[in-house]
Amino acid sequence: MEYVIAFIAGGCICIIGQLLLDIFKLTPAHVMSSFVVIGAILDGFGIYDRFIEFAGAGATVPITSFGHSLLHGAMKGADEHGFIGIGMGVFELTSAGISSAIVFAFLVAVFFRPKG
């Protein structure tokens, strides 16, 4: 059942993204950044954590969870170090994801040629 819920919840987020592309003619970059911002805003109201409890991977895999993680990191940093901690903490939870994106992009660029 968890899998079904995760699939449906994650799929709903993707449907919203597809509608933004097709109907509202947003570019892929706009859709991606909108999702990050929406995730952060929802987290600000404490909604995203409850969504994760409900949908599991359906909520953590889509890019909206990146916004949620940014906010969590920033808040934790602020707790520990005050105002400056916002900047220190904002990428703390997501740093593994960002670093691996850079490293894997590098490796792919070294070993493969673009196809088109």
Binding site: L21, D22, T27, P28, P114, K115, G116
Partner: peptide, 10 residues
């Protein structure tokens, strides 16, 4: 978009 970007085309 560059192909690697993976943007969809209508």
């Amino acid at each position: 978009y560059p192909t690697e970007y993976g943007g969809q085309k209508p």
